[in-house]
């Protein structure tokens, strides 16, 4: 059977991708952020995943407000990087883990979980940036195939934290019943605190961000049991993206080893951080 090798979380701030495009990752502004990703990159090299499940939200690039799926599972064999308005970025296409993706879609629906299933769709910075942070930017091919999962965090009603957790539990069961020997890593993305809209724009909450990183490993229930409005209030209107880490955390064991955390403030207008978890 396939194996869940670990769960990682990270911010997916678009300006991180821009910094890479401009070769600014070693500047005084960006180096402290990128340094925190040396460990996860090394971890990926040593743990050699075949498939990365990436949970993220679209930011008005592949999806418009004409139809807003709460959850979307990608089943494509290939995903192009989205043109977000600045022109396409010079990064390779992503190969899809087509078979496992369809398998997961089946398992979700069998378990009374009803996503949109997408087979022709671009992926924006929400997926690109975590891939670049955790794997480095390859010349022509990413070292893993991907299963992208989109979560609506843009338009209310967004899903509850509890529902994200439940999706993670089904993901775990799907991995463990999938009849190959592939190694699968789960990446929850988004956050940490930030707010881009309204007069509270620029809101950051360093204390809550540090608390999140310190407790998502071994006390995730305190976050799972919050309301969506709590997330907005504590982490900012866009910081509520953190609910997507709960899909990753829900896929892991109750008890985990926290191998690494990193926090840097601010990356553009965002509290940026990452975590590496292994089942205990």
């Amino acid at each position: 059977m396939a194996k869940l090798i670990g769960g990682l979380g990270t911010s997916h701030v678009p300006s991180i991708g821009v910094a890479l495009d401009k070769g600014q990752d070693q500047t005084d502004y960006w180096k402290p952020l990128f340094d925190g990703y040396d460990y996860p990159k090394q971890w990926m090299k040593e743990n050699r995943p075949d498939i990365a499940v990436v949970i993220f939200n679209d930011h008005g690039n592949a999806m418009f407000l004409d139809r807003v799926p709460t959850f979307t599972v990608g089943v494509a064999d290939k995903y192009a990087p989205a043109d977000e308005g600045w022109g396409p970025r010079a990064i390779p296409h992503f190969d899809g883990a087509e078979d496992f993706s369809w398998y997961f879609a089946d398992k979700l629906v069998e378990n009374h979980f009803d996503p949109m299933i997408a087979r022709e769709i671009d992926v924006d910075h929400g997926l690109q940036v975590p891939m670049e942070l955790f794997f480095g930017r390859p010349e022509d091919k990413w070292p893993v195939r991907i299963l992208p999962i989109w979560v609506n965090t843009v338009q209310f009603p967004i899903p509850t934290p509890q529902r994200c957790w439940e999706m993670g539990q089904i993901l775990r069961a799907a991995i463990e019943s999938y009849p190959t020997d592939e190694r699968i890593v789960v990446m929850g993305t988004g956050g940490l605190s930030h707010q881009l809209q309204g007069t509270r724009a620029g809101f950051l909450n360093e204390q809550a961000d540090r608390d999140w990183l310190a407790s998502i490993g071994n006390n995730p229930g305190k976050w799972r049991d919050l309301s969506r409005e709590d997330f907005v209030e504590i982490f900012g209107s866009e910081g509520a993206e953190l609910i997507m880490w709960l899909v990753m955390r829900g896929a892991m064991d109750a008890s985990v080893n926290v191998k690494h955390t990193h926090y840097h403030l601010p990356a553009s207008m965002t509290g940026a951080g990452c975590i590496v978890l292994e089942n205990a």
Partner: peptide, 22 residues
């Protein structure tokens, strides 16, 4: 709204801003 200085992008916003966002 409920959360100070924080607009939630909800039904009302979708309707009011639809053409602008499109």
């Amino acid at each position: 709204g409920k959360i100070a200085q924080t607009p939630l992008f909800d039904r009302k916003a979708n309707i009011r801003g639809y053409k602008l966002n499109k």
